[in-house]
Amino acid sequence: MPTLAGALRRRLLMPDLSEVTFDKRGFHERDPRARLLLEHSGRQFLAGFGHAMDGRDMDDTRRLLETVERPFRGFAYEGASMAFTLTDVMTPWRRTRVRAFLDGPGSPHVYMAYVGIGWAMARLPRPLRRGIAVPDPLLRWLAIDGYGFHQAYFATQRYVREKRAPGVRAPWADPSGYAERVADQGIGRALWFVCGADVERLATVIGEFAPARRSDLWSGAGLAAAYAGGIEADEAETLLKLATGFRGELAQGCAFAAEARLRADLVTPDTRTAAQVFCRTSVEAAAAVTQDALVDLPSDGPVPAYELWRQRIRAAFEDVGG
């Protein structure tokens, strides 16, 4: 049973389930199967949020999160991370939950956990963002990705149809403006949902953005197609063809998804299909590329380490698709 405090936090902070429906969001429906899959991903995100609020301690939270269906469990851990971030910031006298989560049950899902931190960042007033825990100097960029996803998912008119820049501000972001690029990767992930996993619509929408933004949008699209799924082999091949000029970015995003699912032992058939098409290799080999690219990766300098990481992965797949 949830504690009284947990039930109160859930009531005050947890978004309503209707917020992740296509009807509420106005997303494109390619077909009922894709819609149900993507809506269910959102529902399991919110389930994870609730489990974090209900858990008596980290062991109890882990137990609750592990009840979520395996293909969607990563989304639940992402939601839990958002919940812990919000509660940490709102109870500064006990600001330990996020770190305990990252070091404990969230460790196998660390990529999704950092993305969840970004969701919380988007919901918090700017002054309160200084209280967010982002201990890993490389993976904290994924919180910016999560911020971009959140903005495009919940404010689609502004950030997708009107193409406004995300305008991300975070205490740890460099002053060069690179955070905007990482947020665009998150927007690219959101486009997979906004477009209802319709590959032709996705390519059209990305093509409507300014040319300088398309690289990061394709990276995010590849990540979402491979992680969230909803794509058949023939559709993946079509998307690869439509990504002319950005196939390395598509593969890089797919490799990120492969590593995230493999690390958490949550690989799905859709992830295997995406890796085979976008990266022309197995999930295991695509994930290994992301780890090899970390070897001797320099610390943040004129080019952020996160961008160097992405560049190395793209270079490994530069010949994909001809």
Rank of each mutant, 00 (worst) to 15 (best):
V115G: 03
P269Q: 09
R280K: 15
R140C: 05
Y227R: 13
F101Q: 05
R310P: 00
D184V: 02
A293F: 07
Q157V: 13
F84V: 08
G196D: 03
R312Q: 04
T3H: 05
Y306C: 11
E39P: 01
K24T: 15
R158I: 06
E307T: 08
F101I: 11
Y159L: 06
A165I: 11
R314Q: 12
A113R: 05
D60A: 14
E237Q: 15
F278R: 10
M58Y: 05
G48V: 11
D60T: 09
P175A: 10
D57S: 14
G301A: 10
Y227M: 15
R70N: 01
T156E: 01
R164L: 09
I231N: 06
F193T: 12
A83C: 01
A173I: 01
E66G: 02
R11Q: 12
R35C: 06
E237T: 13
T67N: 13
F75H: 12
L86R: 04
C254F: 05
D54R: 09
F149Q: 06
S299Q: 08
E78Y: 05
G245I: 13
M1L: 13
R63E: 13
V277E: 00
L191Y: 05
R314W: 00
M121T: 02
P302K: 15
E69M: 08
P32H: 08
R95H: 03
A228I: 07
L308W: 04
L65D: 00
G118D: 06
A210T: 10
R314S: 11
R312P: 02
P71T: 10
V160S: 03
V194L: 08
G322I: 07
Y153H: 14
R129A: 02
G50D: 12
A288W: 02
W93T: 12
A143N: 05
K241N: 11
T238A: 15
T156Q: 07
W192P: 05
F72A: 08
W119C: 09
H109S: 00
P2A: 15
D292T: 05
D184N: 04
R99Q: 09
P211W: 07
D292V: 07
P15S: 10
P211S: 08
S107C: 07
A5T: 13
E200T: 14
F317A: 08
L142T: 01
V115A: 14
M58G: 09
L308F: 03
I117H: 04
S282Q: 07
L139I: 09
A226R: 06
I206P: 03
M112W: 08
T3K: 12
L13N: 02
K24F: 13
M82Q: 13
P92W: 06
Y111D: 03
T238Y: 00
F193M: 09
